[in-house]
């Protein structure tokens, strides 16, 4: 598979979204929480509390929507500042109640628009980066589709970052890169190669800890093994004192 094939697969409309993962991993135990308490409830970010093998976890996901109607409502998974602020509110809540945080990342990027700028898109992302770095509870981020730049990183300052086999994570979209580099947005395939955005490339660069096999369909047993893998990981992280955990997280990013 070429890098561009991964880009296409990561963006495919029939790909499971955060909602699917939440349903398969947590079933009916997921209780959704809404709003950032400051401005609004951003539907591009879904968040709540759930049970994972009997233990409470905070769940946050960037949600693209599974059909056109949903996609419109979810702004195609591109969050506004209130979405990132909702995510941070839920992370702080998780810290207070000593439960781990799991983030599902799937976004082409933070939204670029008038409202987003007026309400401080840059400030909202910056605050998440800062606060997540010292959050006193384990954080795991799983890239299930697209990981678009700062809008993805704002949910990925984590103790571990995992990626689905066909997920991508990049500083700029391949289209954006091609139009800057060659003034030709059609050279997306070449740009995809240059950016080193596939899970394999990112694993080699030390940006992610684990590559997850793609589920063939929503009934796939991969969800069960993923569930156990997450539970195991949280169990191991829970044994680490908070100060040590934060130091490890700092060093995880300090090395780049």
């Amino acid at each position: 598979m070429s890098a561009y094939d991964h880009v296409t697969a990561a963006r495919a409309n029939d790909r499971p979204t955060s909602v699917d993962y939440i349903k398969r991993l947590f079933g009916d135990s997921f209780f959704e929480l809404h709003g950032d308490r400051r401005f609004a409830d951003d539907k591009a970010v879904i968040g709540g509390i759930a049970e994972l093998n009997g233990k409470p976890v905070t769940v946050i996901g960037l949600e693209k929507g599974r059909n056109l109607k949903e996609r419109m409502a979810r702004n195609f998974g591109s969050a506004h500042p209130e979405g990132y602020r909702k995510a941070l509110r839920l992370m702080k809540q998780a810290e207070k109640f000593h439960r781990p945080v799991i983030c599902f990342v799937d976004t082409s990027g933070a939204y670029c628009g008038i409202g987003a700028e007026e309400r401080g898109q840059g400030q909202a992302i910056a605050e998440n980066l800062m606060e997540m770095m010292t959050l006193k509870t384990p954080i795991l981020s799983i890239f299930i589709g697209e990981g678009g730049s700062g809008g993805a990183l704002a949910l990925a300052v984590a103790d571990e970052v995992w990626m689905l086999e066909n997920a991508i994570y990049s500083v700029i979209s391949p289209e954006g890169c091609a139009s800057i580099l060659w003034k030709d947005p059609s050279k997306t395939a070449e740009a995809s190669e240059c950016l080193k955005l596939t899970a394999q490339d990112l694993f080699k660069l030390g940006v992610i800890e684990r590559i997850i096999r793609e589920p063939k369909d929503l009934e796939s047993r991969i969800f069960d093994s993923l569930k156990n893998l997450i539970a195991d990981t949280f169990e191991k992280k829970a044994a680490i004192p908070a100060e040590k955990l934060i130091e490890m997280r700092y060093n995880r990013f300090r090395k780049f």
Binding site: M130, L153, K196, V207, R254
Partner: peptide
């Protein structure tokens, strides 16, 4: 610098 540039945002914020 691809993803390594993005990582600087987290590193400096830390």
């Amino acid at each position: 610098e691809g993803i390594l540039s993005l990582m600087q945002m987290a590193k400096t914020s830390g």
